[in-house]
């Protein structure tokens, strides 16, 4: 019973780790770049939820001062860090998307295996050219 209680008490942390690993699994196992980017953003927001969970004080309220004495406020520091990190996360995600769009324009594919195959072919050709020059 006590172990169940502690699992429930730490449910936030456990779910955050599950989400983080799900994001990692998407990034490793999928071939499609868009899906990889979505996995990356899942990983990212799991970290955001972890930070905000650490800043929560039970019985507290949002850190906007009310003037009433003896009010408990949650920790404002993680809020500040995550607030800026969300906007930066979207901007960097957009940079990744732009790269994917350009990759599709150049190679007609956004699947990792096809692109690697293309790269290997190119590598062989370059090596042959180098050998010829030597």
């Amino acid at each position: 019973m006590s172990s169940l209680y502690s699992v429930l008490l730490n449910w936030n942390y456990i779910v955050v780790i599950m989400l983080m690993m799900a994001g990692l699994y998407i990034i490793i196992s999928n071939q499609n770049f868009i899906k990889k980017l979505v996995g990356l953003s899942i990983f990212q927001s799991s970290v955001f939820i972890f930070y905000i969970s650490l800043g929560k004080v039970s019985g507290g309220t949002a850190p906007i001062l009310t003037g009433v004495s003896d009010t408990v406020y949650s920790n404002p520091l993680p809020h500040v860090l995550i607030l800026t990190a969300i906007v930066v996360g979207v901007a960097t995600n957009a940079l990744g998307l732009a790269l994917v769009v350009r990759i599709h324009e150049a190679f007609d594919s956004i699947e990792e295996k096809k692109l690697l195959a293309l790269k290997i072919e190119d590598g062989h050709q370059e090596n042959e050219q180098k050998d010829n020059k030597l």
């Binding site: 906007v87 901007a91 957009a94 998307l97 732009a98 769009v101 324009e105």
Partner: peptide, 20 residues
């Protein structure tokens, strides 16, 4: 900055013309 970057990102993505 945030306004201009978000609008600029949208312009860049929706105004993009692929070469083919």
């Amino acid at each position: 900055t945030v306004f201009a970057v978000m609008l600029g990102l949208f312009y860049a993505f929706s105004g993009f013309k692929p070469k083919k």
